[in-house]
């Protein structure tokens, strides 16, 4: 039987600005371990909004959210922050590395926050992730000096450092050229196939989506496929 890492039931959400508008209309999503799920749909269909609800950063919704076996409704912001730190990794369209820090420091930050390993252990783990992504030569560079594709690989390494139950991506290839898109896709593929990492990513890129293990298509706040 497959292990379930994420289950959302009856997710409903309204926007109140500029006027009341139902973005999400009772959505049910479920992601199993080792699955690479692509979330697609036209602009404004609510796929990003759904992503942020699933990410626990958005708490203004109705419905039930279970990640890594824990029901997260009614948790405080600080509890959710600690939960994200341990269980969820993020990869965004813009890479969002801290520009003043080195590549290595950027990757180490979430693990230092988690405080499960000693600093030298964390450093070792960060190097392992960098090697996996072919970035070990750039470890001591300031992150602002890297190219977009390189930054995105560092962001993936950062997302992986705490061995999260699930990686969430918001257009992770949206800002990359085709070469780097392919690279990131290959990395995701390897993560799911070899390391059984669960991934859910919002994307516009049909080619990217086509290579995922499952596509969820949304329109007008509902899942249509």
């Amino acid at each position: 039987m497959k292990t379930e890492v994420l289950r959302a039931t009856g997710i409903t959400k309204y926007f109140y600005e500029p006027e009341k508008f139902q973005v999400l209309k009772g959505i049910d999503v479920q992601v199993n371990k080792g699955e690479f799920v692509a979330l697609v749909g036209k602009s404004g269909c609510g796929k990003s909004t759904l992503m942020y609800v699933l990410s626990t950063m958005d708490t203004q919704y109705e419905g039930e959210l279970i990640v890594a076996g824990q029901k997260l409704n009614d948790w405080s912001q600080n509890q959710l922050a600690a939960f994200r730190n341990q269980h969820i990794g993020f990869v965004f369209q813009f890479h969002y590395l801290l520009p003043e820090f080195t590549v290595l420091q950027n990757i180490m930050l979430p693990a230092l926050k988690l405080n499960r390993w000693t600093e030298s252990e964390v450093e070792e783990r960060a190097y392992t992730k960098l090697k996996m992504l072919g970035m070990q030569d750039h470890a001591l560079k300031v992150s602002a000096k890297l190219s977009g594709g390189q930054q995105q690989r560092v962001a993936i390494a950062r997302a992986l450092i705490n061995e999260p139950d699930i990686i969430m991506g918001d257009e992770p290839t949206g800002n990359l050229d085709s070469y780097n898109t392919q690279l990131v896709f290959d990395i995701f593929k390897e993560l799911t196939d070899v390391y059984h990492q669960s991934i859910i990513a919002v994307t516009h890129d049909e080619e990217f989506a086509a290579k995922s293990s499952r596509i969820i298509e949304m329109a007008d706040g509902k899942i249509i496929h």
Partner: peptide, 16 residues
């Protein structure tokens, strides 16, 4: 702002 947002996404709390 961006750095703060990413720190929060990564699990840094408001007090942090």
């Amino acid at each position: 702002m961006k750095d703060i947002a990413i720190l929060k996404a990564m699990g840094f709390s408001g007090p942090d």
